[in-house]
């Protein structure tokens, strides 16, 4: 026998199931007023004071059959317009960086209203292109799926994550397309043709 490790083992994930919205988005689930203050309904503390450009990202989460899922729940996390993560010194006090949003129960379309993030410098001085991190959960997803939204009108050429994608056409699955001033389209495909690049970070 060898020595015993002191480390613990991470708790296993389980699917969020069909009723995840009652727990995380009670108002969306029809149980409005459950809490005095629901969390993460918007990434803004005060949108009128937030620095940077306010944008909307519209999209759907498609399953392997091409169906726009009605029950997907997504969380976003991002830095502010200056590239500072909320909680760090100098971060925009009008912005929390975190939002929960869901696919519309009738159309399957979601909208994220937020600020366009800046770029930031990571470990070793590496600069990441502006992006928003996403975490997707739903019935049938056994462990939450991580991905990122990048923007077609930014310089993504030297982004360390995008540069690790070997099959170059797959890079496009992480890039939001500008459809109007301040509006972007970003679809997520869980499986099959055009499958989104999901991350293990």
């Amino acid at each position: 026998m060898v020595q015993k490790l002191d480390t613990l083992i991470e708790t296993a994930s389980q699917t969020a199931g069909p009723y995840v919205h009652i727990g995380l988005m009670p108002t969306y689930a029809g149980n409005g007023g459950y809490y005095d203050e629901e969390i993460a309904t918007t990434p803004f503390v005060d949108e009128s004071k937030a620095k940077g450009d306010v944008i909307e990202i519209v999209g759907s989460v498609f399953d392997g059959t091409g169906w726009a899922m009605r029950d997907a729940l997504i969380e976003s996390w991002q830095c502010d317009a200056a590239g500072v993560f909320p909680g760090a010194e100098g971060a925009d006090p009008a912005f929390t960086g975190h939002c929960r949003f869901a696919a519309d129960a009738d159309t399957g379309e979601f909208t994220l209203r937020t600020v366009k993030p800046g770029s930031y410098m990571g470990r070793g001085g590496v600069i990441s292109a502006p992006h928003i991190s996403l975490w997707v959960v739903a019935r049938g997803i056994n462990i939450g799926l991580n991905t990122r939204i990048y923007f077609e009108d930014e310089d993504n050429a030297n982004d360390p994550l995008l540069n690790r994608i070997e099959q170059r056409p797959r890079v496009e699955t992480l890039i939001a397309k500008k459809t109007a001033d301040g509006i972007y389209r970003f679809d997520i495909r869980l499986q099959g043709a055009g499958e989104t690049v999901f991350l293990d970070l």
Partner: peptide, 8 residues
């Protein structure tokens, strides 16, 4: 449900 909702 996991069959069509799991990345390939």
């Amino acid at each position: 449900t996991s069959v069509s909702r799991s990345p390939n």
